[in-house]
């Protein structure tokens, strides 16, 4: 088992196929091989679905086995799976802020599907930029703040009423704000309602 000496960067790169979503356009193997050649990259792998359980396990195993201290996941948008991979790293003992994603799906394979060659070149560039960034990342500690146990519900129609009741029944203080002189909304105006054909109020 390889040990990382402090200060030495050991980066693991994971290029996801996302089934054919990425691999259908981008030559994932070429991207992984390209990343392999970049400084500080210890391992560079392809995976069919890196967000899957075995995919995450792969990253976790590699962190432990190869002493990775930085991870680059080249898959989809961080808006979708950043929490997933941060959690995976964290569980393997790596500070979650030392993981970076390259968005090969939303911002490469899907939008350049008619130009596979250019898309592959772009994918390499995106991975390279992510590697540059990951080198400069630092571990971070998250802060905890208290949460007020009360809720504001804006609108006193059927949805607002239901939400207010659910919250209040569960023990939270609720403020139900309604513009009109009575709650009830449009529902109150309806006669019988489908599919049960009963009275709405």
């Amino acid at each position: 088992m390889a040990e990382s000496s402090s200060g030495e960067l050991r980066i693991g790169v994971y290029v996801c196929h996302c089934g054919l979503n990425i691999a259908g356009t981008v030559d994932c193997d070429a991207v992984a091989r390209f990343a392999e050649g970049l400084a500080n990259v210890v391992i560079s792998k392809e995976n069919e679905y890196i967000c899957s359980e075995p995919g995450q396990q792969l990253i976790q195993d590699d962190i432990k086995e190869h002493g990775l201290n930085r991870v680059v996941v080249a898959s989809c948008s961080p808006r979708l799976h950043e929490p997933t991979f941060r959690r995976a790293c964290s569980q393997a003992g790596l500070n979650p802020y030392l993981m970076e994603m390259a968005n090969l799906r939303e911002q490469c394979s899907w939008v350049h599907s008619s130009q596979p060659r250019e898309a592959t070149e772009k994918a390499k560039d995106l991975v390279k930029a992510a590697i540059s960034r990951v080198r400069a990342l630092e571990p971070q500690e998250e802060m905890k703040v208290p949460v007020a146990k009360s809720s504001l519900v804006i609108g006193g129609g059927v949805a607002g009423i239901q939400a207010a009741l659910d919250l209040a029944d569960s023990g939270y203080q609720v403020y139900l704000v309604e513009k009109k002189p009575s709650i009830g909304g449009i529902m109150a105006q309806l006669d019988k309602t489908f599919p049960t054909m009963d009275c709405s109020i």
Binding site: L165, A168, Y175, K180, I201
Partner: peptide
């Protein structure tokens, strides 16, 4: 509707508008 009006933990504010949330 009646339930929510009577609920001890629900404050119903009618003729009301939220003017700011910070």
């Amino acid at each position: 509707m009646m339930d929510v009006g009577r609920h001890p933990r629900v404050k119903v504010l009618t003729l009301s508008e939220v003017t700011s949330v910070k």
